[in-house]
Design a protein around this nucleic acid. Sequence first.
DNA 1: CATATTACATACTATTTAGTATGTTGTCTA
DNA 2: TAGACAACATACTAAATAGTATGTAATATG
Lengths: 208, 208
Amino acid sequence: MKTANKRIKKKTRNLELSRKEILGAAFQEIFARGFQGVSVDDIVARTSLTKGAFYHQFPTKLDLGYALVEEVITPMIIERWIKPLDQYKNPLQGILKRMQELIGNSSPADLRYGCPLNNLVQEMAPVDPGFKKRLSAALELWITETDRHLRRAKKDGYIKPEVNTRRAAHFIVMAHEGFFGMLKGLEDPKAFDALYESLKRFFDSIST
Amino acid sequence: MKTANKRIKKKTRNLELSRKEILGAAFQEIFARGFQGVSVDDIVARTSLTKGAFYHQFPTKLDLGYALVEEVITPMIIERWIKPLDQYKNPLQGILKRMQELIGNSSPADLRYGCPLNNLVQEMAPVDPGFKKRLSAALELWITETDRHLRRAKKDGYIKPEVNTRRAAHFIVMAHEGFFGMLKGLEDPKAFDALYESLKRFFDSIST
DNA sequence: CATATTACATACTATTTAGTATGTTGTCTA
DNA sequence: TAGACAACATACTAAATAGTATGTAATATG
């Protein structure tokens, strides 16, 4: 039957799939315990594969970390925080709604690991330049894309003309990371409401 | 001469001093490379002491971490962010001034390691309950002390009566951590100004 | 001032770790 | 369909690591 079936790839060996499996396991482990707190053996143990597969994909553990930022975390930021804003006429409302959904409505159990991007920034940015470069790029992208929505909001009359949207975008991304960071550190489940109220007040102050 | 000299303790062995020396070295190393990224050997190598002294003071590496939070980082927060506010009639101005001095005027080299407290929160809070408990206590103290100043500001007519100062304090501490975290991740030295402007706008929105 | 105890120093160990060397089998191509 | 090569699996290694066992000298105390 040659290769008539294109959709059902019944392959026992698949470079792409294996890569995704490893990256998925690595994401879970590193999200929970940090990059330096997780060993390569820990990661492959969460996998149907072995060390051979790991080092066939990634020359070193650091390279896995880089791939994690570029291939998993950055797309996740876009999916969770940027794309949903398209559906809101007023992006500021969209941002608040998203934060309520993804943070406010989460259980403490889900929040205790924080934000995957922020975690790596805090842990690895000062330790390794390769990490820093990629993490910095992810943050910049987040800021730029947020700014894009804010400029739209300004054009549509939701934001005061004198507001520097790029600077506001900086602050908003900072608030995302800050929210996650605080809720991770505190044990108070009502802390989100406190933070949310103040952020809303800030949004009001730049709104028309 | 028995022990006539009380001030000049010329002792070659001193439990307190040794503890401080170890905690000082540990602070530097862990600040730069993270708790899990630093070994006990790394720490004692920065010291005039050896491993014997280390384990005479701390039963385990985790206990050193706990002591670091309680005996070094928490006092540092109080000294740097709380006590200086006493000198300002309007604490909100004091907070902005302090941030300008301690963050805005710092070189990228000084900022690349972020905030000692935030670093440990992000890295260790989900990993170890003992850490989480102590880190949480440090954050709560910071928030409570900030709130104390905000209540004073409210009483003195600097803050609108309808503002919930405790919630505002939450937001302010979040902003501290968020500032450090962002500046650690980004490579843009002008990012502080962007963040500062927005925080000032928030302060204006709660001011009378 | 004798001695008990504290405050260390030194040497060692079992385990974990990133990475390698090499073997094996599925899959593709000619 | 017969190799050729890619995609792994397995077994191993050298270094690092937290912690221990034990020795020793300074200091306190009676």
